[in-house]
């Protein structure tokens, strides 16, 4: 447990620093109140709003651990959201809507996985295919409009609460814990890391890299489906044009801020989720601080750059060196001290 904590320490510190920074511009940032049976406050908004990216980041972490990347997750969100809204509009009810949306996400993931593992297309290209074509599929399902519904049970997934806590926040929490648990309590995590570091050697050692790759992309599709359900339930409508737009990039960024290497190998789901929360804190912080919207992207880019710089191993070495230098200069020099007498 302490090892996992130490792994996530840079992300936790970054998050705390960000919270402190936002609090300067918006002093009530940490205020949480209990109103109408739900917790409210900026922090609650963050854990709720961060849900889609956090969910995507969980799946993306696994894909990146195998030295892959999944560019299609934003589009898969739109597809599964469209499927869910379509099912609701057809009057089939909540349970089939959720089920079909997840099936759609898994199918997209399997498609990606097969392209990567069997056809041998590079992950970035394989998932790019679905990224660009998938939105068209979603638009076909919604017939180009925002497909709205008024099913309160489905909307609950997006805006409901359990004991005051927003459902989307619980969703990523449960998914994150479940995935981390499955990865670390079984041998999946080790096998995924092995194929990410050296697929050839792993194959010689008897690891079934193909099946693992497909499973990992399917997991990413599953997480994207959950994110799509949350986004659709949140606005009570499937917006094929805008749902999950560019979120694949935020998800990749979350994984990177989480300290996971894009070259595959060692991964931490918890750190990626923290990365997603860091991104959402930046987003929400910008909104709360009330700067003109022209500055949004510049501020976000600047903060992300600083975060990545501070976390980079190179810089931490320099930092270490700098500290040693300062300490050395502070120590009184024996000869010098004699001279002053």
């Amino acid at each position: 447990m302490t090892r996992a904590l130490r792994r996530c320490l840079p992300q936790i510190l970054t998050l705390l620093a960000l919270v402190a920074l936002v609090s300067i511009f918006f002093p009530q940032f940490l205020a949480i109140s209990f109103e109408n049976g739900r917790l409210t406050g900026p922090v609650v908004d963050i854990v709720k709003r961060g849900a889609p990216v956090a969910l995507l980041a969980i799946g993306m972490t696994l894909v990146i651990a195998t030295r892959g990347i999944d560019l299609s997750v934003g589009t898969v969100m739109a597809i599964s959201g469209a499927v869910a809204a379509w099912t609701l509009a057809a009057g089939w009810g909540v349970f089939p809507a959720v089920l079909l949306a997840i099936v759609a996400g898994l199918t997209c993931g399997l498609w990606n996985g097969c392209l990567v593992a069997y056809v041998g297309i590079q992950p970035i290209v394989a998932t790019l295919i679905l990224m660009t074509s998938g939105r068209g599929i979603a638009q076909l399902i919604t017939e180009g409009r925002i497909l709205t519904f008024s099913d309160p049970a489905f909307a609950w997934i997006g805006s409901g609460t359990v004991a005051g806590v927003p459902v989307p926040a619980l969703l990523w929490l449960v998914t994150g814990i479940a995935v981390a648990f499955i990865m670390r309590r079984t041998a999946l995590g080790l096998l995924v890391e092995a194929i990410g570091i050296n697929r050839s050697a792993s194959t010689v050692a008897g690891i079934n890299a193909r099946v693992l790759l497909i499973a990992v992309y399917a997991a990413s599709g599953f997480c994207a489906a959950l994110a799509g359900i949350v986004a659709t339930a949140d606005i009570r409508g499937a917006d094929a044009n805008n749902a999950g737009l560019w979120l694949e990039l935020d998800a990749i960024l979350a994984v990177v801020i989480g300290g996971n290497s894009l070259l595959g190998g060692r991964f931490s789901v918890a750190a990626s989720i923290l990365g997603a929360l860091i991104i959402q804190t930046v987003d929400t912080g910008i909104l709360l601080a009330g700067f003109p919207s022209e500055y949004n992207l510049v501020i976000k880019a600047g903060l992300v750059l600083v975060i990545l710089l501070v976390q980079s191993p190179n810089l931490s070495q320099h930092w270490h060196w700098l500290r040693m230098e300062i300490r050395r200069q502070r120590e009184p020099k024996p000869i010098g001290s004699r001279d002053t007498r």
Binding site: T186, I197, N198, S200
Partner: peptide, 27 residues
């Protein structure tokens, strides 16, 4: 290129083939 999995530990490399044979569900 075909033998070791460099970033994994000595322990993990030693049990890798054994683990692959047992399957992922039985660590």
């Amino acid at each position: 290129t075909d033998g070791i999995v460099a970033d994994l530990s000595v322990r993990e490399n030693i049990i890798l083939a054994l683990q692959a044979r047992r399957g992922w569900a039985k660590p």
